[in-house]
Amino acid sequence: MAVPGDEDEQRGTFRAAFEAAGIKIDHVWMQYFSIGGMSGLVEVQAYVYGALTLPPLERDLLAHALNESLDAMGVDGRRASYSREVFKDSGDDPHLE
């Protein structure tokens, strides 16, 4: 998982999973947009190739869209990481008990 604030590492895991799967960016973008993503296709393309930054929430939605797309296609292997740990052990945080 990427460390909070480490956009380059998160971008790297996204791009590695994206390229390994051979999926098209417009498919990922449609999934991203359908779950609430606010960036346009050109912005997402620019982010993937390092020409633009995105806020953590948008990066996480994009990662989730890719991961869901890969799951739906039955693709095993790499997955995109999130900007923070999504699932925590309840022992780590008293608010999750």
Score class of each variant (00 low, 15 high):
residue 1 M to P: 09
residue 1 M to G: 10
residue 2 A to S: 15
residue 3 V to L: 15
residue 3 V to A: 15
residue 4 P to S: 09
residue 4 P to D: 10
residue 4 P to F: 13
residue 5 G to Q: 11
residue 5 G to H: 10
residue 6 D to K: 15
residue 6 D to G: 13
residue 8 D to N: 13
residue 9 E to Y: 09
residue 9 E to A: 14
residue 10 Q to H: 06
residue 10 Q to C: 05
residue 12 G to Q: 09
residue 14 F to T: 00
residue 14 F to L: 04
residue 15 R to E: 09
residue 15 R to A: 07
residue 17 A to R: 02
residue 18 F to D: 00
residue 18 F to W: 08
residue 20 A to G: 03
residue 20 A to K: 09
residue 21 A to L: 07
residue 21 A to G: 10
residue 21 A to M: 11
residue 22 G to D: 12
residue 23 I to K: 03
residue 24 K to D: 11
residue 24 K to Q: 14
residue 25 I to A: 12
residue 25 I to G: 06
residue 26 D to G: 06
residue 27 H to K: 13
residue 28 V to C: 03
residue 28 V to A: 04
residue 29 W to T: 00
residue 30 M to F: 07
residue 30 M to Q: 14
residue 30 M to P: 01
residue 31 Q to I: 06
residue 32 Y to L: 01
residue 34 S to R: 14
residue 36 G to F: 10
residue 36 G to K: 08
residue 36 G to M: 11
residue 37 G to C: 04
residue 37 G to Y: 00
residue 37 G to A: 08
residue 38 M to C: 05
residue 38 M to L: 10
residue 39 S to Q: 09
residue 39 S to V: 01
residue 39 S to K: 04
residue 40 G to R: 07
residue 41 L to E: 09
residue 43 E to F: 01
residue 43 E to A: 12
residue 44 V to M: 04
residue 45 Q to N: 07
residue 46 A to M: 08
residue 46 A to Q: 12
residue 47 Y to H: 08
residue 47 Y to S: 01
residue 49 Y to I: 01
residue 49 Y to C: 00
residue 51 A to P: 05
residue 51 A to Y: 13
residue 52 L to K: 15
residue 53 T to M: 03
residue 54 L to V: 01
residue 56 P to E: 07
residue 56 P to A: 13
residue 56 P to T: 05
residue 59 R to T: 01
residue 59 R to L: 00
residue 60 D to Q: 05
residue 61 L to G: 01
residue 61 L to R: 12
residue 61 L to C: 03
residue 62 L to A: 04
residue 62 L to Q: 03
residue 63 A to W: 00
residue 63 A to D: 01
residue 65 A to W: 00
residue 66 L to P: 02
residue 67 N to Y: 03
residue 67 N to F: 03
residue 67 N to T: 02
residue 68 E to G: 06
residue 69 S to Q: 08
residue 69 S to D: 04
residue 70 L to G: 05
residue 70 L to A: 06
residue 71 D to P: 04
residue 71 D to M: 14
residue 71 D to V: 08
residue 72 A to L: 10
residue 72 A to V: 05
residue 72 A to K: 15
residue 73 M to L: 15
residue 73 M to N: 06
residue 74 G to P: 12
residue 75 V to I: 15
residue 76 D to C: 12
residue 76 D to P: 03
residue 78 R to Q: 11
residue 78 R to N: 12
residue 78 R to Y: 11
residue 79 R to G: 07
residue 79 R to M: 09
residue 80 A to P: 05
residue 80 A to Y: 05
residue 81 S to H: 10
residue 81 S to Q: 06
residue 81 S to Y: 07
residue 81 S to I: 00
residue 84 R to N: 13
residue 84 R to W: 14
residue 84 R to Y: 15
residue 85 E to T: 07
residue 85 E to Q: 15
residue 86 V to C: 12
residue 89 D to W: 14
residue 89 D to V: 13
residue 90 S to M: 12
residue 90 S to D: 11
residue 91 G to W: 13
residue 94 P to V: 08
residue 94 P to Q: 11
residue 94 P to K: 11
residue 94 P to H: 08
residue 94 P to D: 08
residue 95 H to V: 03
residue 95 H to L: 14
residue 96 L to D: 05
residue 97 E to K: 14
residue 97 E to Q: 12
